[in-house]
Design a protein around this nucleic acid. Structure first.
Lengths: 129, 129
DNA sequence: AAAAAATTAAACCGATCGGTTGACAGTTGG
DNA sequence: CCAACTGTCAACCGATCGGTTTAATTTTTT
């Protein structure tokens, strides 16, 4: 029932590790547009097939990519559920950065008022704690 | 104006790398409640001071923590702006997982109807933004 | 002044990382 | 069947990781 929420720590390890490499993030960026083979994923980085293959394996291992073998080509597809898990983890902290943004906004607003006109784009965050 | 959006790739490397370790994620969790010293951060993990010090340095390096030295103690504070950057990166992919979640929701709903539910721990997710 | 406390620095450890190369294997087209 | 194509595997490389221990530094306490 909640099983998909439990024991995500290992998932998060793998997902954040996968995302910590710019090549892999770029690969995900490409996969966001279309399904791609290992070779197609490799070429934009002037990297060996084996190198790209390793990166894809990391992404696959993190559950961010699934592979379909058609003949001799391996077609990779973005699988975003684990990205959602990562995002869910991050959002636990959202109030911190929205708080900060609010105070920043307040500062900017005050600065604006001192200088001239402004635009009021407030977030109206609940003030807790 | 958008300068703070540019060249975050190195930031993202550091942030995602910092988040890829469960000890460091837990440290951030503790720092979300209150400011903590290195020693206070170390104790829950039965880890040496030096070990915790290294983890904090990684978090600091990623811009996720700032340090204030008061006497002989170093007080660490969560700094969430970089978490916001990571979240912003992830949200580029949000449409992929919301698509998936919608189909997942449909599946779970169908399953629930077939079985009859026990606890109503539904997510009540907002379906569009 | 001396001891204790909080922390960093440095050296070290085995494990993993990102990447290459070279050998191997299945697929496809002549 | 053979050659080209696509990809993996295994070995290897230097770098970094997460962690320890020991020594040094600074501040507080006695």
């Amino acid at each position: 029932m909640l099983n998909h929420m439990v024991e995500q720590s290992a998932h998060l390890d793998a997902v954040f590790h996968a995302l910590a490499d710019p090549t892999r993030r770029a690969m995900l960026g490409h996969l966001a547009e279309r399904e791609l083979t290992i070779g197609e994923l490799a070429t934009p980085f002037s990297m060996s097939f084996a190198g790209a293959s390793k990166h894809v394996k990391v992404l696959e291992n993190a559950g961010l990519v699934t592979r379909t073998i058609r003949g001799r080509t391996h077609h990779c597809r973005l699988q975003a559920a684990r990205l959602a898990e990562a995002d869910a983890w991050l959002r636990r902290y959202q109030r911190f950065w929205t708080e900060r943004l609010d105070t920043l906004e307040a500062l900017l607003r005050a600065e604006d008022e001192a200088k001239g006109s402004s635009k009021g784009s407030s977030k109206a965050t609940a003030r807790k704690k």
